[in-house]
Amino acid sequence: MSKVLILAEHNGDSINQSTAKVLTAAKQLKTDGIDMVLFVPNAELASELAQYEGVSEVHVVSCEDNHDQLAASIAPTIADLAQNYSHIWGPSTTFGKDIMPRVAALLGVNQISDIMEVIDNTSYKRPIYAGNAIITVSTDSDRQVATVRTASYEADKSTGGSAEIKESTLSTAADHTTFVKLASGDSDRPDLQTASKVISGGRGVGSKENFDMVFELADKIGAATGASRAAVDAGYVPNDMQVGQTGKIIAPDLYMCFGISGAIQHLTGIKDAGTIVAINKDADAPIFEVADIGLVGDLFKVIPEMIEKV
């Protein structure tokens, strides 16, 4: 028997696209069924999940006091459900990375992190060393806990499914951990992780004020905005804009970056982009080794000119 349980990610108002990407990966397995588990008592979100083709059951677990986001509270419930599944998968977002290893520990297995390719029901490819090597791994465990590298998969867009919705209440809330708050760098721009176009800036942008130029260009073409770690560390932009090994791994159709040198830790976050455009004043910057289109130039001249011409 081979059955998949997918941990759905949401923010209270909507289902995160990472869920549909995990579903795409799961559909590459030979399975006897795919189910989902959603930790929030929201009928609308549950029925959204139930509409995916190929999903048989949606377990909706209601939790109080933001326990839906607390790994220590929800992992034991997932581990209980897992008894009926061979594959227990979540997204390799910060949400999934926080929770899935706990599920694995409860089941007594190692987790397979960041699946980028499904070879068959027991073997997968995943990146290591910041993506400098790809490793093929396999396991003969009856319970496979894994996270799926979302940038490697398109979101499943199927509709017309009619999964059964099963409701329950969380009984495993841990009282040693309390959610206090979430501070988001709210913006009206497209979401960095799902946008088809991303414009990003690095240390070369030079200041918080100068980043306005990057935002202006992004708004002009309807792009999301990203940044290098150096730009975040320098306080030019908030942390949720960081792209790379320890930030977001993204796969837009167009990634255009200004004043970013191209450190391996940054490149690992953009490897799957369709077209990479780099603008840097240093002709020897490593970013040009991966760029599809490169322009050696001063970003303070190039950005205003682009704003004018697009």
Partner: peptide, 30 residues
Amino acid sequence: HHIKANHYEPPQPRQKGVMVESVDELVTML
């Protein structure tokens, strides 16, 4: 509970890109 490492390979290289000389050229290409 071990995960076996069966094979290592380098990542797929990206295709060689092109360099442009001006913003006009860049915008046209995009």
